[in-house]
Design a protein around this nucleic acid. Structure first.
Lengths: 228, 228
DNA sequence: ACCTGAACACCGTTCAAGT
DNA sequence: ACCTGAACACCGTTCAAGT
């Protein structure tokens, strides 16, 4: 009579670390770094908020895992096949695009300790590219750093607009934006540039801006190689 | 008999917006972005946490004001006096050093909308420098962007170690660091570089790394100017 | 092995009330 | 004009207890 002691666990599969991290990424993409809470995440997964602790240990670790999952999206670009400069170009663009799709990674990186295989693999790939270019020793570190710092900085620029996009419809936010515009307009050079930029397609603008900086850096690195 | 209706306000000066922002910067420097709370701040200032709302409106606005106070620390570097390249160099270094002293600005920039006169002044100064170099139109925007994106990216790199430094003494943190080391060591190129870098003075390392990247960018920009 | 619920010590913010 | 205290709706995390 009590052969079935409790609900059979058949249709209700057990929670997975992978599943939790995936849900966290989705929630972060939708609601930003402040939009993630263990309770909201639990609600989405249909379980208690505290169930997650068994799988991921802490919120910090969960965010770190989520970041690493994003880093894993960055593709591989073989310098032997493409030539180092083209591989470097694609690697940097790919990194930037990936971070742009998950801007909360920037805020997370500043607030939590983030490191994992995804990020390490991207770093290693970067070293492979600049090694193929001919850099060795400290110059190799510097070259890798110049390119990836620029990509990270570009992502930071984008991330700074994220809080606006996240709640752009509130009155307080519109007011803050208007105030920022007024401040910028009170500096002659900024006003002139804003007038020039008005009405330009932002997507194209951002793309060209990134490509210009990237080519500048690749030019500079190539000049260093020749100077040897 | 009731001529003194309540405590005379003589020695107890009134709270000031300036005072609150200053205390917030100090607290943020000490405890990082997660270390700031309205209650802790109120405690430091000897008043109720809710007293701050009258002066700064919200935590978001307070953080924005704190960031702008940091931006105000960046100095002015006159291209007419120093030459554009030296002015650009000092401007970028100054920006980087300032952000390095207040790494929470990076996390704050990703989580809140941050803009103010301090930041606008730094941008305007940057435009002045690259205008003096001879850049005009969109190239001027791109040149300003290349340099400041690199400085921001370098600050982001530093900020990523901030969570570790903030609570480096905990067992969980040491474990996380050791795990990160193990991960990196499993990639051949990263392991080789880590072995090379072991025992090098980190301060010098960081400085040289930044200078290399900066000169690369300035080289690249100068080449563009010549190509016209 | 995996999950729940209650509990704890925190948060940001609002608002009526005080001086 | 400026500040307090209580209150509200949230947090992350621990832990005993359940299945």
């Amino acid at each position: 009579m009590n052969s079935v002691q409790y609900a059979v666990p058949m249709p209700r599969e057990t929670l997975t670390r992978e599943q939790i991290v995936q849900a966290a990424v989705t929630l972060l993409d939708e609601a930003g770094i402040d939009g993630l809470s263990m309770r909201k995440l639990g609600q989405r997964l249909g379980s208690a908020a505290t169930a997650m602790y068994w799988h991921v240990g802490s919120k910090e670790n969960l965010v770190s895992l989520a970041c690493d999952r994003v880093w894993s999206e960055v593709g591989a670009h073989d310098p032997a096949e493409l030539g180092w400069r083209e591989a470097a170009r694609r690697h940097a663009r790919d990194t930037y695009e990936t971070l742009r799709g998950h801007t909360w990674v920037i805020a997370a990186t500043g607030a939590y300790f983030v490191y994992g295989h995804g990020m390490a693999r991207v770093q290693d790939a970067s070293y492979a590219i600049y090694e193929a270019a001919g850099f060795t020793g400290w110059d190799l570190d510097w070259a890798v750093n110049a390119a990836s710092t620029f990509a990270g900085g570009a992502a930071l620029s984008d991330a700074s607009l994220d809080p606006v996009k996240q709640r752009g419809d509130t009155a307080a936010m519109r007011e803050a934006l208007a105030e920022a515009g007024e401040i910028a307009a009170s500096y002659p050079r900024l006003r002139a540039r804003l007038e020039q930029q008005a009405g330009v397609d932002e997507a194209v603008f951002v793309e060209e801006k990134f490509d210009f900086g990237l080519e500048i850096i690749l030019d500079g690195l190539e000049a260093r190689l020749r100077a040897r």
